[in-house]
């Protein structure tokens, strides 16, 4: 006889995470082939027993505007295409089926190439032409130059619903926020692993008129062995506070998972650790899976194999099937 189904009292979360749309198709006044919606959670990630529902997360794949130094096992995937961001973006889309591209305009940094804003905007236009997937426009991280770059990018991409990555309190974020509002673009707010500051900063953005449906939080993703536990806790805390009703934290979460490659274990040659070819991608995809379980909605990633692996995790985790199935081949592992 079947026993009654085990149930826990519902947690009763107060607020849903906002939904952010990325990319505009012709119907919406843009030129992208597809658009994506992220966020919308009503419980912590995969708490199906509590009625978990959410938009499918999306992975955006890195393209840099100059061939930057990357680990050999990453470079190997792109070859000469790294010389030109258009080619790199095309390769990402054609060969690796990228759903979204992050164009990092790193060369605009005065310490790197000091590319002018006008030139950077030309690159953006070129990439918009070259591929028809939605875009994230990334700055160089230079707090003096990024505000102008990102606000100009908002203008250049008008109608395309791009994401501007990123703004933080130590720069003229007001300028970027105003441009984003004017051109209806979304923003990534970046605060390294600090929920209280994240809350304060998002409130400032909202005071400037940025809507919750246009903000994605980046709490920084440390790789395994390089601070992943801080990232897990920062994301989990923000997500819980958001679900419990904090309007400044009930926002989708972005994970710049490529950071995982800063861990030596991802790229360094070391016989003790085994070959690098799979160790590197595994480092990135396992870091991503920690972010996924902690609530991340948007992933910015580097290695195509890590991307594939995370995609198949999405498929598996978002397809709950019969949650209460009573049959499982698992116990055969003993004799298998």
């Amino acid at each position: 006889m079947a026993s009654p189904r085990f149930k826990l009292p519902k947690e009763g979360y107060k607020q849903r995470i906002s939904v952010v749309s990325i990319g505009a198709t012709r119907r919406d006044g843009g030129t992208r082939d597809k658009s994506y919606r992220i966020g919308g959670e009503n419980t912590p990630a995969f708490h199906y027993f509590d009625g978990f529902k959410a938009c499918h997360p999306v992975i955006s794949e890195d393209v840099f505007d100059i061939p930057i130094h990357l680990p050999g096992n990453v470079r190997h995937c792109f070859g000469d295409a790294m010389e030109d961001p258009r080619d790199w973006a095309r390769l990402r889309v054609k060969k690796y089926a990228a759903k979204m591209i992050t164009l990092h305009l790193v060369s605009t940094d005065p310490k790197v190439g000091n590319t002018s804003i006008a030139e950077a905007c030309k690159t953006i236009e070129d990439v918009l032409q070259a591929v028809k997937v939605p875009l994230i426009i990334g700055g160089s991280g230079n707090p003096d130059k990024d505000p102008e770059l990102l606000s100009k990018a908002a203008e250049v991409c008008s109608g395309e619903s791009v994401v501007l990555s990123s703004v933080g309190p130590d720069m003229n974020y007001r300028q970027v926020a105003e441009a984003a509002v004017k051109h209806d673009q979304s923003l990534v707010s970046l605060i390294s692993m600090n929920p209280d500051e994240m809350r304060r900063f998002n409130r400032n953005l909202m005071k400037l008129g940025v809507k919750p449906s246009n903000i994605i939080m980046d709490l920084f993703t440390g790789g395994i062995g390089y601070g992943v536990e801080y990232s897990i806790s920062a994301m989990e805390r923000c997500r819980l506070l958001g679900l419990q009703g904090d309007p400044f934290l009930s926002l989708p979460i972005a994970s710049a998972t490529s950071n995982a490659w800063s861990a030596r274990e991802a790229w360094m040659h070391n016989e003790e650790w085994g070959p690098r070819e799979l160790r590197g991608p595994l480092w990135e995809s396992s870091t991503a899976s920690m972010a996924l379980l902690s609530g991340a909605d948007l992933f910015m990633m580097l290695h195509p194999f890590a991307v594939d692996c995370l995609e198949s995790l999405f498929d598996a985790l978002f397809k709950p099937g019969d949650l209460y199935s009573t049959h499982s081949p698992y116990s055969m592992w003993v004799e298998g």
């Binding site: 085990f6 099937g321 199935s325 698992y330």
Partner: peptide, 28 residues
């Protein structure tokens, strides 16, 4: 609680593990 190694089993697996921890903390 087992790992369901079939295609749609991972969601079920994560759900079960989470539910079980939660139940323990709820005093079951």
């Amino acid at each position: 609680p087992g790992i369901d190694v079939r295609d749609d089993g991972l969601a079920r697996t994560v759900n079960k593990f989470t539910l079980l921890r939660k139940a323990a903390l709820d005093g079951v």
